[in-house]
Design a protein around this nucleic acid. Sequence first.
DNA 1: GGTATACTTGATACAAAATATCAGTAAAGG
DNA 2: CCTTTACTGATATTTTGTATCAAGTATACC
Lengths: 146, 146
Amino acid sequence: MDRKAEKILNRIVQNGYRRTNARQAIVTALVNSAGHITADDLADNVREKEPHIGRMTVYRTLELLCELGVVRPIFQGTGAAHYILMDNGGHHHLICNRCHNVMEFEECSAAMVMEKVAKQFNFHISSHLLELHGLCEECNEISSHQ
Amino acid sequence: MDRKAEKILNRIVQNGYRRTNARQAIVTALVNSAGHITADDLADNVREKEPHIGRMTVYRTLELLCELGVVRPIFQGTGAAHYILMDNGGHHHLICNRCHNVMEFEECSAAMVMEKVAKQFNFHISSHLLELHGLCEECNEISSHQ
DNA sequence: GGTATACTTGATACAAAATATCAGTAAAGG
DNA sequence: CCTTTACTGATATTTTGTATCAAGTATACC
Ligand SMILES: [Mn+2]
Ligand SMILES: [Mn+2]
Ligand SMILES: [Zn+2]
Ligand SMILES: [Zn+2]
């Protein structure tokens, strides 16, 4: 069992939910997918090992993980939600408006803002998402000499 | 005609797209909606004044505005995408994982990170989205004394 | 271990949201 | 005007997400 998956499953139990086979399989598949996956794609992955697990259960587990702050749905070109892992406290994307390419980065100075805003709103922050939008190198070149 | 809408329409023209009645009506309705609206809700709004405008055109216009970096689709509890305006360069949300309540804030120190990352990836940043996730005051209380 | 209980599951049906297609329309430029 | 080509909107279809409910199973308690 993956360490990361184990951590998430513990979180499920700690919040009063049950540790079931389905949830174990789904969380494991999610962690192995390295994020950025749609619910239906995840369901397909899960079924490679556990063919009996239903699509609904995957949807419901993702919903639960949202509530626990473990994942967050985002748009990524297509209509279906893509789920990203928020388990490390932060997730940072550089997203091209044109080709929808997504690059990851780690730098982040959200800490100060977070503290300030958390106080102001009495909000308990568990994670954050920073998306920088614009044009990637290639798309920028295309649009400049056209 | 709203100043904000005018600005967006200019942007459409400057990028080689046509300024049509449909796009004018849609952009105006979008600006008046103050953001956080789904495609279908926007279509309904548009039709109050221009009943002949089709749903497809609204979807396509939103797609175009995404490409121009004017809006960004996000998830907000429900299944349908909610479009938020990125026209001021940044958009900042505090989102409760449980009740899905969304609060706006302005503080942001993303500037430094942005500069650094832009250089590193040769990326042309036009806007950003910062989402802080966690539990709002009420939801936090509920989960602590249960 | 056995049992009661509430939580969870998955098949099915359904609703909502997004996309593909295409003939007709109108914006832009000359 | 007239031509060209991007754009539109009706329609059909696919994809994605949700509601329901009988059957299954994790957990607590004995
Ligand atoms: Mn990512
Ligand atoms: Mn907002
Ligand atoms: Zn690009
Ligand atoms: Zn809340």
